[in-house]
Design a protein around this nucleic acid. Structure first.
Lengths: 242, 242
DNA sequence: CGTGCAGTTGAATTGCTTCAAAGCCTGTGG
DNA sequence: CCACAGGCTTTGAAGCAATTCAACTGCACG
């Protein structure tokens, strides 16, 4: 569980006054049940949502019963990047386990930004951080084989969860079905299933119920060419604050 | 040809003082030849680059001679979203025709942002605008058929060029080879070639040398399910300034 | 007048999808 | 407590979209 203020200063350090101003924002804390929507596609966007606890998927629906998961969100991630820039939401966000969400009214957020360049900067850096993940996903879906895609996605989530202290040494909770894993990697469910079987027999990756077990992370990274640089716009900052 | 100042206030309106401050930034204007690099992957990032004229591709290299184009950049687009947040560049940007680039030193940009929340806001909105394009690309590569991917990409570029007045009524200049088109859509060159033949015989889309001809844009949009909403975070703004 | 890159086409192969069916869990109501 | 329903997973078999390999064309350029 992280407060939304922590999440906004993920990539930057704010002064006590700025933190106080953020805390003074009107906000609602909402609990969301698994499979329930946090944000719904094509609706007017009135709030800036921060996932303060849980695990969620951000997705886009295409004609013909097709769906693409654009990103997975973990504790501390903003749900709707572009809520502040447009009148309607472009993506849905769905809770994959019980989640806690903080909702900030957009006009108030914009008003606060007008008063503090460093808060604006913090929001900007957060958006940039998310966009380098999006870019890596394009490469993942476009140019990697099925098994590499799945492995790379698992490496990413493992790394992100470890950084916020939510992973186990050899794995993590994974409340994602094979259907959803297919929607994230651009593969069919049947093929995801076969890929998971292969990854298990080669000892790279095992799914037990709702958790992922990684015996040999180095081997998994080597298999899919995972390089965590793209997750790390400001490597020094987290360390300097710790 | 657009000045970098115009491009930064693409999604927001700045005061005369703010515009003056931007203009006062030290900047270099560089001409870049076709196929020459504008930004190189894995190098320290010292400048914030804005493409003020031309057409460029932003790409990521993967092991095994694989390459993924992450985005195409047109006049007025920022080249390196995350230059300000990280020490090294994650992507290369390559000129596809003679280009003009404005280079702004990152420390000065950050210093200016500290003084003006609205400039920070403008940069933020620019990043958000680019990230909704990235999200749409994930869906494109992940869940559309080959022909739909190519058609959708062409619809996007056509729409973006029309908005900045760089398209013809029925098409536009397209300095992109079939190899590059494959790298943008996650397809092999051979298959791109066959898709283009099919799109031509169905009268959806024709490539003549270096230009795209679209006889019936409505039909092309219907074919690939193109909806330009994602390109338009602030629909009212451009109109209100015009 | 070759050299090299972009485009084009054919043939063989494969990675992945689709369809179909069965097994497995969990929750629910009789 | 058992029967049943509805997701999720697993497996087989057939089919297809896209890749790979290979050869050839056309064209631009030195």
């Amino acid at each position: 569980m992280r407060s939304f203020v922590d999440s906004i200063q993920k990539y930057s350090v704010l002064s006590p006054q700025e933190v106080a101003a953020l805390n003074a924002l009107p906000n609602q804390i909402v609990r969301v049940a698994p499979n329930a929507p946090i944000v719904t596609e094509n609706e007017p966007s009135r709030f800036y949502h921060v996932l303060t606890d849980g695990f969620a998927a951000c997705s886009r629906t295409l004609p013909g019963n097709r769906r693409q998961i654009i990103a997975f969100l973990v504790s501390g991630d903003a749900c709707d990047l572009h809520a502040v820039s447009g009148s309607r939401t472009l993506h849905s966000v769905t809770a994959l386990m019980p989640c806690t969400v903080t909702r900030l009214p957009i006009p108030e957020v914009l008003a606060l930004i007008e008063t503090s360049p460093r808060i604006a900067h913090a929001f900007w850096l957060d958006a940039i951080g998310q966009s380098s993940v999006l870019a890596e996903w394009i490469a993942n879906v476009g140019r990697r084989t099925g098994a590499e895609r799945v492995a790379h996605l698992i490496c990413e989530i493992f790394t992100r969860l470890r950084r916020i202290g939510l992973a186990r040494p050899q794995g993590f909770e994974w409340p994602v079905t094979q259907v959803q894993l297919g929607d994230a990697t651009g593969l069919s469910t049947v093929h995801v299933n076969r890929i998971l079987r292969d990854l298990k027999t080669t000892n790279l990756l095992t799914l037990y119920g709702n958790s992922v077990v990684i015996e040999n992370f180095a081997a998994l990274k080597a298999f899919c060419g995972f390089d965590e640089t793209y997750l790390n716009p400001i490597p020094d900052l987290a360390a300097s604050r710790a």
